[in-house]
Structures are given as structure tokens and as C-alpha cells.
Design a protein around this nucleic acid. Structure first.
Lengths: 349, 349
DNA sequence: CTGAAAGCGCTTACAG
DNA sequence: CTGAAAGCGCTTACAG
């Protein structure tokens, strides 16, 4: 069933069928109704490729999940508590707006080619990039072609410094700096003076932000930052576990440990438990991300909730807006985090 | 950059460029090399829509996640421990085979239309349907058009009984019946004689299979099936929690409880914990699915592991095979589960 | 081995 | 208001 067939059945030309389908104003209600009836009856759907080829959009956006850390179990990206809700919200929001979502994972630099391809082959109108280690050169190439692009969790100053073409570009972040500061302030308000940190991967924007906020909040309060309380966790459970055990073996513990994500917080809790160190009585723990596990483990973990829902929804709105040319050509929005207080931190007297 | 441009630059015709791109045998190495060099140099990618329109495939498969249970938090489908790994494996497997994945969620019967549309608009070469309550009428419509289709977790006898056109159709299942039987046999081998069940949603294939296996394994061993030990859990945490509390209030407990999924097992554990009933000393618990949480909670949950990886990978292989017409027109494969023994079941003496 | 031409199924100025 | 025609960028018999 092609538009030609519909045209014949309705006694009009293909042009008119097309006008009806695309809701052009200059077609009288009666012809419109006539055509629509036939379309309805035969469940006609215009061929999306022919449409796109003839100049219409594809009504498809790309969602590219980048995970290039060899240490992570690379084949489990959508089970990750960070990616999963993003997929959820992006797909739902896009679907609700009548867009399809093409989803692709990037595990190696070679896979970046696939992102470019999706654009060059005109498979998508725009794309959302999420995950660690976005390749600035790829981004440069994409934006130089005016491909509508949204970056989630990206350092804006890098974009500025690199003098990227900022047309059709949007950047979505969470306010990790402020969120971390709030968490540390909370610990301080409980009376903690000796606070340690499990750092995230410093090659990521969020890893750097969380550490920077930790450092400056301590300094602002005149607290000392002991280097043996600074653990390189790299956002990974295994690394965090090992580092925590090293800390324990060194003898002296901080009274509180800020963990740059929940995975590491849980690993630390396991390490402490194994050595008979009780949470929160012996040491207070605070996580980041507020994953599902945070409220499930015992004791329940106090954590900083990431505004993933807002970020994902906003990313879709932005990319659709950019495709429609109804968005300002460059935007940069950050959503606030929220400290969720549970049972893993203790008041010091 | 169009094939025409490449042709000019390489000093050949569009036909030849096309032949090179599609790897036709009848083009000499030297012309091939000449053309490839230009393609390389300009990073040319053929327009996917023009290709598809001219008869080539789209190299895209659809993944449709169906979740129509109003009680579930419908907007969280990809965070579900069942869907998330399927998305993972489907996307990865498809990407590795050079296919893109179009992903769409179905929350209401109206959304089914979107699946049909994706096919009618020729956006995809084939599709994978996963989730509860697949609409048999939709499936009938799709298969009647010979759309390559793979159904995950679907009752084969229904397909047979409904006399569907089985061309270009494949069905992938897990061996829930055998898995459940193994779990119950295990409990019996530990000495349990009074075994209860938290049932899944009986409108789903897996819900029915798991219950049927429970029932017949008890009977096979001459054990009685007490109706007050049969709880309607509907696969939901909340329902399971309420039903477990009712069981507790009734006074007499079974010595073991088989839960048709881990979510319900965890809810039951919470209910028992609240009433001071100890696991596994007072009651043994066994779950199904072996989700991430099973190995995290305390005590660690014994559970039946679903072969989700095999299922998802196989689904992609099947759908690609069907698109290539290299698969038998109908197939039906089931993968075995595996009982993962942890700490939630006790030997009875 | 290779090019000219038709065709895939739409949209959109253009002309009326 | 509406149709004939050109064009989107490919592929593929067809002819040579």
C-alpha cells in the first residue's frame, strides 16, 4: 500500500494524500475526510524511508551509551544504576513525543565511528551522548556538521576552551559540586572533623567535581585534609574494597568516609563489616547516586540523589528542540541533587 | 556527499560505486581500490534511507518491551532486573552483528500500534517482543505480513492452538518448569515436607509454568499441597509482603517457601524479619530469577538463575537469521535455568 | 566488467 | 484548492 494507491482509492492525487498526511492547511475538510477514511481503512503508513529521503525528518533520536573503562564489566552497561534509568526516561519521553530511539553502546574508541555513521547515514535527527570519556574530537566533528547533539555529564569549560562550534549543542549536568558540599556539610554538622574520601575516576567530570567539592568544603571549615584518608576508588567496587582494607590496616580511621558513588560505599561497608568495624557506630558512611541498593542494604545508606530523571527528560526535550530549531543554539543546564538521609551516619558527641 | 560525487571523483559511474559498497564480486580489484580510496578519503556513508528505499534492508531491529501491569511502576521498565539485561545483550549482540536497535516501550494496548507502525513504515527488518501480556491478535497481524518476529517468554501451545502463520517466527523461553522442579526437589532433599508458594501473575506464561511445576513436584513426591500455603503474589513486592503477613497471622507456617521471583522472595524476607521470624532457621526461602539483590541481601538468597543472556543473544541471532531468510521459518528454543544455592535454605533434621 | 536508465515511495515547489 | 513533474540518493536488471 503506497500513497499512490490511497490516492486512487480516494479519487485524488498523491500530492493531496501527502498534504493530508502532513496536515497542511490548504486542504478542505471534505477531501481531507475522504482521504483519511481510506487511510484508516487500509491502515496505511507512509514509508519512513521515502519520507526521510524526500526531505522529512526521521523522527528518530540516537542514544549512545559510552563505557570505555576496561575494568568495568563492559557488557553490563544497561544494568548499571546510572544508565538504566537514563534509558528508561529517554525512551519514554521520546516515545511520548512521537520519536523513536536508536540505541547504541560504545565500548571502544572504534565504536565512536558508529555514532558518526548514524548521523552520516541520516538514521537519526539528533543524538544524546551519555557516559564516561566522551571523545572531544568526535564531539568536535559532530558539532561541526551541525548535528543536533546533547551531552550528559560534560565539562562545559572544556567545550568553551576547545572552542567548539556550539550550534545545535546542549549540555546537561547534575550539580555534583553542590551535592557533595551538602553531604560534607552534613557530616560536619554531625560533629565529624576527620573525614575521608573514596575518590571517583578523575578522568570523569563528575569524579573531579565531587573531589573538588570535598576538598574545598573541608578547607572552608578549617578542617585538615589528611592524605592517608584520600583513597583512589575509581568508581569501582573492587578497587574501593581493596583501598578500604588498606585504610583499615593502616590503623587509624577517619570518623566518616564520603564515597564518590554508592557502589564504592557498599564495597567499603563490606570491607568494614569483614573487619568487625560497625557502621555507623565506628565510622559514618555517605554515598553518592542514591541507587536502589542504598535503601536496601543494612544499615540503609545515606546518599546524594542524582537528578537522573530530570536530566534524561531534559536531554530528550533539548535534542527534539534542537532538531526543530526551536531551541537556542547552545544551552547548558544543571539540575540539583538531594541529600537523602538514612542510617549510615552518626552524631558525634 | 552522494554516491554520484564519489563516482565522479573516482572516474566511474554510480553503478560501480554501488557495486563496490555492496561488495559485488564482479568488480576488478583495481577499480575497487580506486573507489574505496575516495570513499575513505571523504568518509562517505551511503544514505540509509535511500538504500532501504531502493530495496536494501534497514539493518535495524526493533526491541519492544511490553509492560502493561498497572500495579507496577510502569515508568521503570529498564531498571527492572529482567528487562535490563535483555536490553544489554540485545543491543550488544545486534551492534556486534552490524545492526542498529530501535527500542520502544509498550505500556498500554494503544501502544501496540507503535509496533505495527514500525514494521509498516519499514523502520525495522524484524522485531523482538519481550514482556508480559503479548497481544495474540497483534502477533497474528504481524506474522500474517511475514514480519520476522521473535517472542521471548511465550507459550508455544498458544501459538499452535491459535493457528498462527508461523513463517518468520521464533519463540525463546527459559525452562521455568524444570527450574522450579529442581528448586522444589532441592527443598525436599533438605527434608522439607511442608512447602508453600508465592505465586506469580497467572496471566503470564512463566507464572503458570512455575506454579504448575511446584504443584506437580509436590504430588510426585506424595506431599500434600495445603491451600493456605498458596499465596497470590502476582510477581509484586507489595502484594507478596501483604500475603506473607497474612500467612504469618494465620499462625502455622510451612517449613519452606518457594517464591516465584526474587522480588517477592525479598518482600517475604522483610515481612518475616519484621515479625521476628528468622531465615533460614525458622523458615527456608527460595527465589527465582537470581537478580543482583539475591546475592547482596542477608542472608544471601538461594535462587533459580534465568538464562537471560542466552535468551537475549539467541533472540538477536534468530531475528537476524529470519531477516536473512537463513533460519528455518519457525523455531522454538528453551534454555535451562540453574539453581544457585546460597544461605536461605536449611537442612531439616 | 561497466554505464544509462528505471524504480523505490515519498514531498514540494510550480503552475493553474 | 489540486495535479503533474521533478527530485531525494540509492540499487539493480538490462544492454553492451
Amino acid at each position: 500500500m503506497r500513497s499512490e494507491d490511497i490516492a486512487k482509492l480516494a479519487g485524488v492525487s498523491r500530492s493531496t494524500v501527502s498534504r493530508v498526511i502532513n496536515n497542511y492547511p490548504n486542504v478542505p475538510e471534505t477531501t481531507k475526510a475522504k482521504v483519511l477514511r481510506v487511510i484508516e481503512q487500509y491502515q496505511y503508513e507512509p514509508n519512513s524511508f521515502a519520507r526521510a529521503l524526500a526531505g522529512k525528518r526521521t523522527d528518530t533520536i540516537g542514544l549512545f551509551a559510552i563505557s570505555m573503562n576496561e575494568k568495568e564489566n563492559a557488557t553490563r552497561i544497561y544494568q548499571n544504576s546510572y544508565f538504566a534509568p537514563i534509558v528508561d526516561l529517554v525512551v519514554d519521553t521520546a516515545n511520548a513525543r512521537g520519536f523513536y530511539v536508536l540505541i547504541h553502546t560504545v565500548y571502544s574508541p572504534g565504536d565512536f565511528q558508529k555514532i558518526k555513521q548514524a548521523f552520516l547515514q541520516k538514521r537519526i535527527d539528533g543524538g544524546i551522548l551519555v557516559g564516561t570519556q566522551k571523545d572531544i574530537e568526535l564531539v568536535r566533528e559532530l558539532v561541526s556538521q551541525d548535528a543536533p547533539l546533547v551531552l550528559i555529564d560534560y565539562d562545559v569549560s572544556e567545550v568553551i576552551a576547545e572552542r567548539l562550534n556550539k550550534n545545535h549543542l546542549a549540555i546537561i549536568n547534575s550539580m555534583d559540586y553542590e551535592g557533595t558540599a551538602e553531604a560534607i556539610e552534613y557530616l560536619i554538622s554531625l560533629g565529624h572533623q576527620e573525614i575521608g574520601i573514596l575518590k571517583g575516576r578523575m578522568s570523569t567530570f563528575s569524579g573531579r567535581e565531587r573531589y573538588a567539592a570535598f576538598e574545598s568544603t573541608l578547607l572552608n571549615h578549617g578542617l585538615t585534609l589528611r592524605q592517608d584518608y584520600v583513597l583512589e576508588g575509581e568508581f569501582l567496587k573492587e578497587t574501593a574494597y581493596v583501598e578500604t582494607e588498606k585504610l583499615i590496616k593502616r590503623g587509624k580511621l577517619p570518623t566518616a568516609l564520603f564515597c564518590s558513588n554508592d557502589d564504592m560505599a557498599i564495597a567499603a561497608m563490606e570491607a568494614f563489616a569483614k573487619h568487625g568495624i560497625h557502621i555507623p557506630n565506628d565510622i559514618s558512611i555517605i554515598g553518592f547516586d542514591d541507587t536502589q541498593l542504598a535503601s536496601t542494604i543494612s544499615p540503609k545508606l545515606t546518599s546524594v540523589r542524582l537528578p537522573i530523571d530530570d536530566m534524561a527528560k531534559s536531554a530528550v526535550e533539548k535534542v527534539i528542540g534542537l532538531c526543530n530549531n526551536e531551541e537556542a543554539s547552545f544551552s547548558n543546564v544543571s539540575f540539583p541533587t538531594r541529600l537523602v538521609i538514612r542510617d549510615s551516619c552518626k552524631l558525634i558527641v
